[in-house]
Amino acid sequence: MDFSFSPEQRELQAQARSFLEARFPLSRLAQLIDSEPGWDPSSWTELAELGWLGVSVPESLGGAGLGFVEEAILLEEFGRCLYPGPYLATVAMALPALDDARLAEVANGKARWSALLGPAPDLVPDLNRVDWVVVASEDQVLAVEATGEMLTSIDPTRPMGRLDQVSGELLGKGQEAVRIGRLMRERLLTALALEAVGGAQRVLELSLEHARSREQFGKPIGIYQAVSHPLVDCYVEIELARSLAYWAAWCIGAGHEDASLAASAAKAAAAGAAVRACERAIQTHGGLGFTWESPLHRYYKRALWIERFGGTSAEHRSRVAETLLQRPPTAAAASASGAAVLPEAGAGG
């Protein structure tokens, strides 16, 4: 039950799926993540050549001039293959803060970025894999050099560091800083939701393959409802989260006023769905699922990281409720949901 993506969007999705499956198969992931530097920096050049770094960068700056819906398609696929690299940090987080010259450098793969949003927490994802960090506060946005101390992240594919200092060139201030900060946050939350959905879907597929092929008591274990029904619940949760993530992506692409609400809703639902899908996958795989060799722990650690980063699911649920409760009584229920239209075919951002 896919969305009505346009033929071009479908093609992008298929292209991303086949490229990433060939370049980052599960069999390569362990070796890549467990050895220095923990990712494949040469892959960044490939992403630039594919045009995936400049999807939403204007064509005049070397980009594709598309929108967030196309970036969303890629983010879901990156999440599915657990790509270890600063794509989320550079494209989802930092882009809205960058001027033309810096956008061109992102599109051609010369500069990688991460970002720090708001006063706390002060942890920067992928700090040792990027050149620059956007530091956004309420009154100003700065470009800070990416130097600092690395810490041990719960997800080895998402190393976290603390900046040495937070001074640098001014990228925006005042109302412009507020606008940039809000857009960065909406894009981050939606990107996290998309990565979560992509990863959860892959992990569910692994569980289903195992439930079909693993036999105990002379039958495939998927025949037992104690095994199958919890997997159904994971599937339902993932499908619902996917609808929210696409809605949020569409809102951002269209500049819709519900973007912030949608991003929080999507993040809360998708992070929870991913954590539960991974936990259920480990249980479904039994002892095999608990081994270091199994890819499941890598997805689980990513899901746990997504659940924490940018605010927990519980925080976002409360934020959604508080937003709705502040609306006038008659509008509280209807307005946001009344606007809940889905992207038409080809609705880019």
């Binding site: 619902l240 809703a265 639902a269 934020r319 409720a321 508080e322």
Partner: peptide
């Protein structure tokens, strides 16, 4: 009860979109 209220609204919205 904001956590629970948010959860139910999000779920409703997700169902509608789905």
């Amino acid at each position: 009860l904001t956590d629970a209220i948010g959860r139910e609204w999000i779920q409703m919205q997700a169902l509608k979109l789905t």
